[in-house]
Write a protein that binds this DNA or RNA. Structure first.
Lengths: 144, 144
DNA sequence: CTGTATCATTCACGTCATGAACGATGTCAA
DNA sequence: TTGACATCGTTCATGACGTGAATGATACAG
């Protein structure tokens, strides 16, 4: 056979698209898209206050997209934009309390999604999958 | 922590996007996009000659998109469109020899990609991952 | 034969993300 | 200090992608 469809890469691609869609519909009540969540998550993980350029590099998107995402998150009150006093070109983004709460709800939604799709898996397989995916993500340079 | 980023759903989403991109750049020399490969793979797997409606349903896309994909594949000589004599509204798509060869190259490309991203994994983990992903895909109703 | 449903196709549209241009700010050398 | 150049955030025009409504051809029930 040697089928494309049974390849890890292809399955990750198609499954990833489905996950994105399902996650998107779960969080649309918060007026958020997956990329917004990605941005907030990067903000939470980051130790130092992040400039928009840094964020763009971490997320692997164009800086102009970060502007749009930050605009929306700021409008929701999830994020604050502050000029870096040390370098006034930079906008440092920080997560507000409301943003953290929102992020927590998104994490819960993702958790539900996990439960739904891994319902037929043994607990050991589930943790093995989570672990393996984490290493793959790290391998391709994705923020963990 | 309870981090979104460590969730299976989120990791599948981001990893899936990366895989799609990498796979797309591997096959762009054949003038193909991942969806074209998906269509050809569905064609190969299908026993009976498939109508475009069927394909659209299997792939989870709009029928009008199948038209565009089939147009391109037909132009490449990878697919043949034949009116179903039993129901002349239907166009049945079949994979040509050239299409099968193209599909094989795409399968090889996906295989290379597998090797690249799973280089740091033990062979047992790799097969476990492939198996688990297959079951997840089946669980969400994806064609296997 | 007539009305209705189904298929493939076309077309206008919305969404998403990018890259080029621009103004503001920083930096470095003369 | 001043002038050249780099960097940051922002705006804007543009292209890629997929959808849904409208259309014409064909099937089918009454």
């Amino acid at each position: 056979m040697n089928d494309v469809k049974q390849t890890i890469a292809f399955r990750l691609g198609t499954l990833g698209a489905v996950m994105q869609d399902r996650f998107a519909s779960k969080i649309e009540t918060y007026d958020l898209k997956p990329k917004h969540v990605g941005l907030m998550a990067a903000l939470k993980g980051g130790t130092a206050a992040a400039s928009q350029q840094d964020l763009a590099a971490r997320l692997g998107v164009a800086p102009s997209l970060v502007v749009a995402l930050a605009d929306h998150l700021e409008h929701l009150g999830a994020v604050e934009r502050v000029r870096d006093p040390g370098d006034r070109r930079r906008q440092t983004l920080t997560l507000t309390e409301h943003g953290a709460a929102l992020l927590a709800r998104c994490a819960a939604a993702a958790g539900e999604l996990d439960d739904e799709i891994t319902a037929s898996l043994a607990a050991s397989e589930r943790t093995a999958l989570r672990d393996t995916l984490g290493r793959l993500a790290a391998g391709v340079g994705l923020p963990s």
